[in-house]
Structure formats: structure tokens, C-alpha cells
Amino acid sequence: MNVEITGLTRRFGRTTAVAGVDLRAGPGVFGLLGPNGAGKTSLLRMMATAMPPTSGRLRLLGRDPGRYGQRRQIRRRLGYLPQNLGYYPGFTVAEFVEYFALLKEMPAARVQAAVRVAVERVELGGKAKARLRTLSGGMLRRVGIAQAIVNEPELLLLDEPTAGLDPEQRVAFRALLRDLGRRATVVVSTHLVEDVGAACAQVALMDRGKIVFHGTPADLAARGEGHGIGDAPLERGYSAVLTGVRS
């Protein structure tokens, strides 16, 4: 198992962002659904070793992120796209991705090739020499994805990766996800249900810090049969589960 989580909790003052989550995930694409404020970002940040949990147990890639040495080994094998991508406007696309390749301690000899591949995979090959300040929002999002995948991560955490992508790009991105999920554990947080249906083998639904549903997309769709509001089976399942929990 690449991700083993038991009783994971995170509090911010009085807010409990993540309230005792249990989760196990092996290779494959894992969708994390939930309304705004459900705790998806907080969960992903803990899985990305960006933030320690308040309590609970977390093992990533068979290692304990609480220890510095093991955390560093996890981080070498990690890709993380935060919800709000920070970037350096003066860097070119290739430079920005190279910067992260170097920070992820890739061997210097392989960096150049890896950067080229990552930039190609998000279809920014033609823009490799463009400065980030000249890019559109969707392109920046793809630069963020490129830096996350440049080290061929074994654990890839993407927080709302499709926000700002045009439909064509979104379709291409789902294909990329499927491809990456063949070897790595990819956790995608999103509130766009279609993304989950098209790319994820497993899906979890979060609400108010808890996982309220865990199964395949087909299971989720089945929950919505007959009740739930929405235009597509998954949407109906999503709303049915949430209504069920809240009532």
C-alpha cells in the first residue's frame, strides 16, 4: 500500500478540517470528492508532508513522514500540485520545472531529459521558453502539473488540477492521469464529478472532515439511482450521499 492512513485528524484552532480519516490506497487513480471546505486540501497537504497531522497515523510509500530521513525519501518520490500554485513570473516554463526537478534531488544528468518529457506531457513543448508571467491561467495549471510529475513520482497528489483547463485539455489530462495511475498512486482532489468518472478507479467522498463514501465510481453512481439531484449518474450519487449524511 502506498498510502496508509488511520484516524488522521487535523485541527485549525476550533475548526476540525480533517476528523479521523482512514484510507488505504495502492497504485491507481484515486478521486477525492467533496464540497468546498470538506477538508480535501487539508488531507492532501498532510499526505504531501507539507503539514503534520494533529493526531492519527500516516504512512506513505511504506515510510513514516514524521521522521526527517524517511520524510526526505518520501519527498524524493512525491509529486504535489497545491490548490493555489505559487510561481516565479520571471522563470520560463522549462526553468520552473527544472527548478523543481533539482529540488526533488533528481540526478543532474537526468534533469534535462526529465524536464523536456514533463513539459511535453502537459503539451507545453511549444511554450517551454515562455516566461510564466506571459502564460494564461490554464497553461499555468499545466506548468504546475509538469513540476509535479517531473520526477516520475510514486505518489502524486493533485489538488484541483483541472481548474482552469479548457474541455480539450481536460480530456487529455484524464488520459494522462490514467497513464500515470498505471504505476503510481495518484490522488486527485476535485469537485468536478466528471473527472472522477472518467479517470478514477477508486473514489472517496469527503464531507466536514470525514470520508462519507469510499468505493468505485460505479458504486457511487448506484447510490444515486432513484433519488439525488443532478444531470449525470455520478452527480446524483454524490448528492444522494451528501443528503444522506446530512439528514
Partner: peptide, 23 residues
Amino acid sequence: MNTTNAPAVSRQLPATRRPGRTA
């Protein structure tokens, strides 16, 4: 996004062997 262009990068990522060059 490009899935056909399979990664040419090999998988294992050991610690940097030549820190000087990376630096």
C-alpha cells in the same frame, strides 16, 4: 496532455550522486 510520449526517464530516483553538478 500527452500520454503516448512515454517517459524516457528511468524510474528509480536515488539520492543525487553528484551534488556539485546539481548545485
